[in-house]
Computed example of a mutant assay.
Amino acid sequence: MIGRLKGVLLEKQPPHLLLDVQGVGYELLAPMTTFYGLPEVGAEVVLHTHFSVSENAQQLFAFINKEDRALFRQLIKVSNVGPKMALGILSGMDSSEFVRCVMSNNLNALVQVPGVGKKTAERLVVEMRDRLRDWSGAADGPVPAPVKAAVSSSNQMFADAESALITLGYKPVEAAKALNAVLAEQAVERSEDLIRLALRSMMPK
């Protein structure tokens, strides 16, 4: 079981990461909440991991702190919630937001996550409420940096952000609409920030 990796960040294309650990390149999948806290490519980073094995794939998931990994592990225990959906949930909201949604029975926010219908949202609330009752809000990793407005954006940044949203389960039309809406209001410099703002815009107010 691989539970923690420390190495140099080689690539980050949401939701994929490539981490160099003493000459070995580890391909990782991570939620957007982790991408928000990552350093620039070429910097060293410590990631907490979860190794998932299924009939069709072996995947290594990475998280910027143990709290998000713990929540991910609780999510995949819920009936009909697999790693992909759990990754989508943690991309659309951070762990504290998810806990608030569950404890306040906020189904409207949960069904905005791709693949989460009303029945799944209800199941998440029922099965997760007791598990989260004593949930600690203290994170043990870096705090995601605030989104900063930038001077300009690029076609490549838009393409990277669109690809990431589609990978997370959003339809191409939905992804493009949300991204265009963000860029119409402000200039954004990084694809991670663009994705974050687009995801926020698609959540119910």
Rank of each mutant, 00 (worst) to 15 (best):
Glu122His: 05
Arg123His: 06
Leu124Trp: 12
Val125Cys: 11
Val125Thr: 10
Val126Arg: 15
Val126His: 12
Arg129Tyr: 11
Arg131Gly: 12
Leu132Ala: 12
Asp134Trp: 13
Asp134Lys: 13
Trp135Ser: 11
Ser136Trp: 15
Ser136Met: 15
Gly137Ala: 14
Pro142Phe: 15
Val143Met: 13
Pro144Gly: 12
Val147Cys: 05
Val147Pro: 06
Lys148Phe: 14
Ala150Met: 10
Val151Arg: 14
Ser152Ile: 06
Ser153Asp: 02
Ser154Phe: 08
Gln156Leu: 06
Met157Pro: 03
Phe158Thr: 02
Ala159Lys: 02
Asp160Arg: 01
Glu162Gly: 07
Ala164His: 03
Ala164Pro: 04
Leu165Gln: 05
Leu165Phe: 09
Leu165His: 06
Leu165Ser: 05
Ile166Arg: 12
Ile166Gln: 14
Ile166Ala: 10
Leu168Cys: 03
Pro172Ala: 07
Val173His: 00
Val173Ile: 02
Glu174Thr: 05
Lys177Cys: 03
Lys177Phe: 09
Lys177Glu: 11
Ala178Thr: 07
Leu179Asp: 04
Asn180Glu: 01
Asn180Gly: 03
Ala181Met: 04
Ala181Leu: 07
Val182Trp: 05
Val182Leu: 02
Leu183Trp: 06
Ala184Gln: 09
Gln186Lys: 11
Ala187Gly: 07
Val188His: 03
Val188Ser: 01
Glu189Ser: 12
Ser191Gly: 00
Arg196Ala: 09
Arg196Lys: 07
Leu197Phe: 07
Ala198Ile: 12
Arg200Val: 13
